[in-house]
């Protein structure tokens, strides 16, 4: 995977992920699955957020499966719906006529993957970021609040999902696209999330699917 127009430092700590677990609660029932999938069997990144690292809004995934591309996608969902396949690391924007725009994404790491049906309740350009207390404990020199900007781990755009703590957002770590690294949010390269942002309206339906195999 090549990342275009990336400037910044790499701090990669890779480990093989041979299995992962997930919880999902749909219609009041709790579901648990633990199984490898073809995509999950790839390496999973063990990498923390790097606040202050710069990634510009021009960064896109330039090639490989995670490059933004028009694909055939059979779905009865209306155009404008977002369908996320967590296990595959893909986000589909339904275009209608069995077509979709497919974006490569980074997803929640082990234990932070989920499924559900939500709506985009808010959108923001260069969203602010508040490091969680656990991160402040590890990196006490961090500001407790960082206004939006190129060094912000939230990246160039954010789509807020329902009333949850989860978002579809950009990143200042574009090399993490295609990996399970987050705390449940879905991240795209900045250039790609800007493209998505321009196509998605507040109120858009978002379906998060996780292929739980036994």
């Amino acid at each position: 995977m090549h990342v275009k127009a990336y400037s910044g430092r790499k701090k990669l700590n890779l480990r093989a992920a041979v299995a992962f677990g997930l919880f999902s609660l749909a219609n009041g029932s709790l579901a648990f699955a633990q199984a490898p999938t073809p995509f999950a069997a790839q390496e999973t990144m063990d990498i923390g957020d790097e606040p202050g690292r710069i990634s510009t809004e021009e960064v896109v995934i330039e090639d490989g499966p995670y490059k933004r591309q028009l694909v055939s996608f059979r779905s009865s969902e209306p155009a404008g719906t977002i369908v996320i396949h967590t296990s595959e690391r893909f986000l589909y924007l339904v275009l209608g006529n069995n077509r979709a725009l497919r974006y490569g994404i980074g997803v929640g790491r082990d234990g932070f993957q989920w499924s559900g049906l939500v709506k985009v309740t808010r959108k923001a350009e260069w969203p602010d970021w508040t490091p969680p207390p656990e991160m402040i404990a590890r990196q006490p020199y961090l500001p407790r609040f960082m206004a939006g900007g190129p060094g912000n781990p939230m990246g160039a755009r954010a789509h807020y999902l329902g009333s949850t703590v989860y978002r579809i957002h950009g990143t200042n770590q574009p090399e993490t696209i295609g990996h399970a690294v987050s705390s449940g949010c879905f991240r795209l390269a900045n250039g790609d999330v800007i493209d998505l942002y321009s196509r998605v309206a507040v109120g858009a339906k978002v379906i998060i699917r996780h292929a739980a195999t036994l």
Binding site: F23, S24, L25, A26, N27, G28, G108, G111, F112, W114, G116, L117, V118, K119, P132, E134, L161, G162, S163, T164, V165, Y166, S183, G184, I208
Partner: peptide, 10 residues
């Protein structure tokens, strides 16, 4: 939310 029921600790 509508169908989403779980949030994991961050």
């Amino acid at each position: 939310d509508t169908c989403l029921k779980i949030v994991f600790a961050v």
